[in-house]
Design a protein around this nucleic acid. Structure first.
Lengths: 156, 156
DNA sequence: CAAATCTGATTGACGTGTGAATCACTTACG
DNA sequence: CGTAAGTGATTCACACGTCAATCAGATTTG
């Protein structure tokens, strides 16, 4: 409802919204991460890996399968698994079918750590994120996320 | 308008919104960062520091003043400034008034790099973030950010 | 004024992310 | 079948973040 010309730059209000949004959600994310780390000594990376493995058949996945599942680069996962293996959360075994690959296996300690972490983690998400908003707002944010996703998929 | 009991955990919908939101905005952020880095060889950290210094009196700020301005921990800024100094974007000089402190000074190269980066950076924010939404949605997101901020400030 | 305390800033150890290079094994194909 | 290309996974170099420790120079206070 304004000029006919196609603006190429954001208005200062739009820019402010972007920055405020970024900042607020960053703080929320880091609070949730801090809680997870404090309660369960897990990073969100750990949690993501443990979650995927917990749901996997036989608590095992090929490493690249796992990377695809959680949308990570292989090298990122490699480092992550190295750290997790050192802490005994997972272990790796050579792969018979394909001697290049390896199986990532959830250890009992890893399964236990994950299990113990979920309730407190979900509680943190509820308290820090969900409780900030009305049900309607949450729904709107879901729609916004979907719309953004779509926009990003479309092009650029 | 449902149960009378106070839920302690998020519903699966709420959880899904949190995750979708996190993911979508993460992608947007990293796209914008990638553009900034591609167009101007600057990280968002660089940009933030350059922005603050550009607006500062005499293009100079005390290091802790700068840290406060952009809400960074001192050690974080220290590392950042080290990298930026190596690249010639800023330089540091001992402080006469307080021999412990130091002045961070925007170099000509730094000022030029910042100036050249802003338009493309703002354009990226417009294209990647703003253009995904209606004006109404942007406004709602501003409100959501404010509400979350308030919620986070309140407690936990 | 001298010892205790506070404060500006850097450093170190470590976790985490990216991209390019590497390496070993598999597969495709002339 | 043997070389070229492809693929699974790790490694390297680097950027970046956090927290605890350090350190030198200010300040406070008995």
């Amino acid at each position: 409802m304004g000029t006919r010309t196609h603006r190429e730059l954001p208005t200062s209000d739009e820019l402010a919204v972007w920055r405020a949004h970024l900042e607020a959600f960053d703080i929320a994310r880091s609070r949730i991460e801090a809680r997870l780390h404090h309660d369960s000594q897990l990073s969100t990376g750990d949690y993501k890996v443990l979650l995927a493995l917990s749901e996997a058949d036989g608590k095992t996945m090929r490493s690249s399968e796992l990377a695809a599942e959680i949308s990570w680069e292989r090298s990122r996962l490699s480092g992550q698994l190295g750290r997790m293996e050192k802490r005994g959360l997972i272990r790796r075994e050579p792969c018979v079918e394909d001697a290049r690959g390896s199986h990532v296996i959830l250890t009992d300690a890893g399964a236990a750590a994950f299990k113990a972490s979920t309730i407190p983690h979900l509680r943190a998400i509820k308290e820090i994120f969900v409780d900030a908003f009305s049900a309607d707002q949450i729904e709107l944010m879901g729609e916004a996320a979907a719309k953004l996703r779509e926009h990003l998929t479309a092009a650029t």
